[in-house]
Design a protein around this nucleic acid. Structure first.
Length: 518
DNA sequence: CAACCTTTGAAGCTG
DNA sequence: CAGCTTCAAAGGTTG
């Protein structure tokens, strides 16, 4: 954020095409969704692209703004009512949205809320609006309780109503991200055509298009499906609720894309990853909280769902490391050498294909591999006398001013493998100075009122301490880092499990980056 | 059209 | 319980 230059540079992938045409986030984000809204609110004139207007306009909407919008809303409401009549989940979702809204989650204090009409923001505030305003009630069904009573059908546990008062100023669309397949599907179907195919696909993304048959899904309805040979196929795929970072990505992606004019998600994600680390504690807390809510909601909507369903779902993809990799998922040449040194990439890498250097075939990977692969992050292991966090902190220091160098080389220009690394000037990598302290955190500090069912015992219900993990490219032990310990030493540091940045992490790290010592 | 890339976090599985 | 694996989003790229 602050340090845009560095933040906008994907470690290896960045190819900035132009200086940054800053497009108003609000106009970029969820642009499809907004389109209709804008359509309805045309009279706003051309300034609608400006984020600052967003808030005002949002207010408009909520306040009943202009009559045109009002009319639009009315029609939308009626549409929703009819939908709601047949769709329990919709009601639930709306309820939840209202809940969040009334909890102060939604209104997005500081930030512009996209002026999308309620229908386009199905989860948000709709229920609240319906319940609290004089607008037509959504639910035909008798006692669909207004915001204060527990959600209808699926609710197994009462939803805590004393939601935290934290001011979660998260743009509305973020809150929409709740992964409720069916709802999205409904929305999609109701918004007739209009949307380009691509968008449509996205809308239904959380449910692998299976929604076609019946509108109600959820765990129950899944079974309702025809018992075809493999019900799996028929089952609507209920996706995992998004985690904090995913929510963050969803929100920020458009912004980053606008700023960087990058399109490649991999690159964007790198940037986002760094930004995430640079994010303030409170900011992250918002997302953690949001994610937690999403999980809660997800649990309520799909009590029987477990992520296992998705994992065992099988066919999905083998993804990530192939079995024959021997677990070596060392990142490819691209990551190691950067764009600058494409000459060093293996051929497939140059063609964006799978890196042959690491792709297994027993021996093959070796030569190079030894060089880098073993990077075992484990490395983090011990960093120096100070915890590795330490070195990492140091390295993050001054944000490198934009270093164009970054774009290619990416990694810290000089990170020493040893403890001394801590001094290494980081020329890069990091996001912002502050991050060092922040990243590891999570919202511990925040005193949430809500105790989610699942939340870890005592820890202030904070999400488990987020893995102390170096942002990409900052970890000298990270094999992705061309100048990593391993890269430099050519040594294979077997990651003897033990010390990795964090448990949670280690696994990941291991799975992603490396190892495999013959 | 599916898999890959890339990120972090959550959850399930395994030993 | 620690460690590992998979999936969630996203969109360009490739086979």
């Amino acid at each position: 954020m602050e340090d845009d230059n560095s933040m906008n540079e994907p470690l290896n992938l960045c190819k900035k095409k132009k200086p940054v045409a800053i497009v108003a986030p609000s106009s970029v984000v969820e642009e499809d969704e907004l389109k209709e809204a804008k359509e309805a609110k045309r009279d706003d004139g051309g300034r609608d692209a400006d984020a600052d207007d967003g808030a005002a306009r949002a207010d408009d909407v909520s306040a009943g703004g202009n009559s045109k919008a009002d009319a639009y809303q009315r029609s939308v409401y009626s549409m929703i009512r009819s939908l709601a009549a047949s769709e329990q989940n919709l009601l639930t979702a709306m309820y939840m949205g209202g809940l969040m809204s009334s909890a102060g989650l939604i209104p997005a204090a500081g930030r512009p809320a996209p002026p999308a009409p309620p229908f386009l923001n199905p989860y948000v505030g709709l229920w609240a609006a319906a319940a609290t305003s004089d607008r037509p009630q959504l639910s035909p069904s008798s006692d669909r309780a207004p915001a204060s009573s527990p959600p209808p059908a699926p609710a197994k546990k009462n939803l805590p109503l004393n939601v935290p008062k934290i001011d979660l100023s998260i743009p509305q669309h973020t809150q929409l991200s709740l992964n409720i397949p069916n709802l999205k599907a409904i929305s999609q179907s109701s918004k007739t055509a209009e949307k380009p195919a691509k968008t449509t696909a996205k809308w239904s993304s959380s449910m692998d298009h299976k929604s076609s048959s019946s509108t109600n899904d959820g765990p129950k309805s899944q079974e309702s499906g025809h018992a075809s040979s493999n019900q799996e196929k028929k089952k609507p795929h209920i996706k995992k609720p998004l985690n904090a970072f995913m929510l963050y990505m969803k929100e920020m992606r458009a912004k980053v894309v606008a700023e960087c004019t990058l399109k490649e998600s991999a690159a964007i994600n790198q940037i986002l990853g760094r930004r995430w680390h640079a994010l303030g504690r409170e900011e992250q807390a918002k997302y953690y909280e949001l994610a937690r809510r999403e999980r809660q909601l997800h649990m309520q909507l799909y009590p029987d769902w477990s992520s296992r369903a998705n994992t065992t779902r099988g066919k999905k993809r083998k993804r990530k490391q192939e079995p024959n990799d021997g677990g070596n998922s060392m990142k490819k040449c691209r990551a190691r050498y950067g764009l600058d040194q494409q000459s060093q990439w293996c051929k497939p890498c140059r063609r964006k294909k799978k890196c042959i250097r690491y792709s297994g075939d027993d021996g093959t990977q070796e030569s190079e591999d030894n060089l880098g692969s073993c990077g075992s992050v484990g490395g983090d292991t011990q960093s120096p006398d100070g915890d590795d966090g330490e070195s990492y902190h140091h390295s993050s220091s001054a944000s490198p001013g934009c270093l164009s160098g970054l774009s290619s080389l990416t990694s810290p220009s000089m990170i020493l493998p040893s403890p001394s690394a801590s001094l290494a000037s980081p020329s890069v990598s990091l996001a912002s100075p502050c991050m060092s302290l922040q990243s590891p955190l999570t919202p511990h500090m925040i005193d949430y009122d809500v105790k989610p069912p699942i939340v870890h015992n005592n820890h202030h219900h904070a999400p488990p301490a987020p893995p102390l993990r170096n942002p990409v490219g900052t970890n000298p032990h990270d094999i992705n880092n061309p100048l990593s310990v391993n890269q430099l030493t050519g040594k294979c540091i077997k990651n003897s499990s033990s010390a990795s940045s964090s448990p949670a992490n280690s696994g990941k790290e291991a799975s992603r980056t490396v190892i495999s010592v013959p």
